[in-house]
């Protein structure tokens, strides 16, 4: 039987078209979930409006910044700052479906 296909990461662009990003994340270095995973997507948030982010996806990078090896608080801060900054009107998430 053929080996299970390895899920390939893909970039999802979330346009900041709402007051909140509207995702809840779980995970970070030194926890059972080593990379942040999306556990909730709130209706009306930018992530929900984008329509391409899904619950269960694992976030590898934010605007090219790797989240590998980062503690939960550090990863959450990077995402929050990416949403807050006025330099860009979007956030690029490199995500992968759970393998």
């Amino acid at each position: 039987s053929s080996p299970a296909p390895v899920p390939t990461p893909n970039v999802v662009r979330v346009v900041k078209n709402a007051n909140t990003l509207g995702i809840a994340i779980e995970g970070g270095a030194n926890t059972r979930q080593p990379l942040p995973r999306i556990v909730t997507i709130q209706k009306g948030g930018s992530a929900h409006n984008c329509g391409q982010l899904k619950v269960g996806q694992i976030i590898l990078e934010v605007n090219g910044i790797s989240l590998r090896g980062r503690e939960h608080k550090d990863a959450a801060k990077i995402i929050a700052e990416a949403f807050k900054t006025k330099e860009k009107d979007h956030i690029d998430f490199l995500v992968v479906d759970p393998g």
Partner: peptide, 15 residues
């Protein structure tokens, strides 16, 4: 696998 089980669960942050 054992190592993962001994690691603490993570907190959840709403963004």
């Amino acid at each position: 696998r054992e190592k993962r089980l001994t690691l603490p669960p993570s907190e959840i942050t709403l963004l």
